[in-house]
Design a protein around this nucleic acid. Structure first.
Lengths: 157, 157
DNA sequence: GTTCCAAACGAAACAAACTTGCATTTCAAC
DNA sequence: GTTGAAATGCAAGTTTGTTTCGTTTGGAAC
């Protein structure tokens, strides 16, 4: 899971395809990158084992499963004592509505991406998550009007 | 792609599995949700056709492909004229390093998630993206120290 | 309660994709 | 050149995905 045996151009080409559609048959991938299907398969397996590929998932449209609202939250904490920060990380990560959580530098300490069914639900969430937590000094809310670009694709250029 | 024939408990159970691992065999899914493999298959295909499932992708660890730095950027524009906003959307979305882009309400107009190889690269990106654009009034940078929770999973509770 | 229809289901046959074993090739170090 | 480790392609074998088809289910109209 740790060794980084260096990715070559084949690996990158395969990743570029899988990042967009991991249902692409290995035979087709092989044709596009000029390798046989077994070679492709072995490279994929190796990248999965070494953690280059972290997961294979279906991307679901939040609006179609009852979460039409996406919200960004900047959270500022009172104390940055390590154990309090760790507790905050665990707390945020455990909430299903919190889709993403980052610990950041700058004018905020955490940035969260949240999906909810309604603003009322968001309001209830802020109560549970921020107002009930003594270590949260302040938070700022940004409601997404347009999800211009959504994904976790990484540039391989 | 538009009709919403309402998802039932089976569909949700299937989605919950696919959101975490879309390589799970249909038979296994069937066993877990109490359906036959063909039934599972038909439901998945329907959800793909109707857009509930937007894509099937491999999630790649950015650090392992040369992009160890994740950055949030709040962008504030001068004018919110529709055509300028649309131009900004297209411009941001076209940049490979811009992994996510949202048009938001609040103290900023856009929030970007960017992955880069180095701060020097980020500096170069800001030059191209913000300083060269007359409509960008100001931007704020938040560098991720810890990617506490990363994903696009949607709560189905 | 019965009839009818459309939608969804399961079992089995079928097709496609994945996986493994093995001989060959590649390439760098000697 | 020779050697050895690593990767490759081919072909066989296995698993998974897909289609067919007859049956069941769940309503709506009667």
């Amino acid at each position: 899971m740790s060794a980084s045996p260096e990715l070559d151009a084949y690996d990158r080409a395969i990743l570029a395809i899988l990042q967009r559609d991991n249902t692409t048959p290995q035979r087709v991938i092989g044709e596009r990158v000029n390798l046989s299907a077994p070679a492709v398969q072995r490279r994929i397996r190796r990248m999965e084992e070494t953690g280059v590929i972290r997961a294979n998932v279906a991307l679901v449209d939040p609006a179609r499963v009852g979460h039409p609202i996406t919200i960004f939250v900047e959270v500022e904490v009172e104390s940055e004592r390590a154990e309090l920060i760790d507790a905050a990380k665990r707390g945020f990560a455990a909430v299903p509505e919190v889709q993403q959580c980052y610990y950041v530098t700058g004018e905020a300490d955490f940035i969260l991406v949240v999906t909810v069914a309604s603003m009322a639900d968001y309001e209830a969430l802020t109560r549970r998550l921020f107002f009930a937590d003594n270590n949260v000094k302040r938070f700022r809310t940004f409601v997404a009007m347009d999800r211009v670009k959504v994904g976790l694709e990484v540039s391989l250029a």
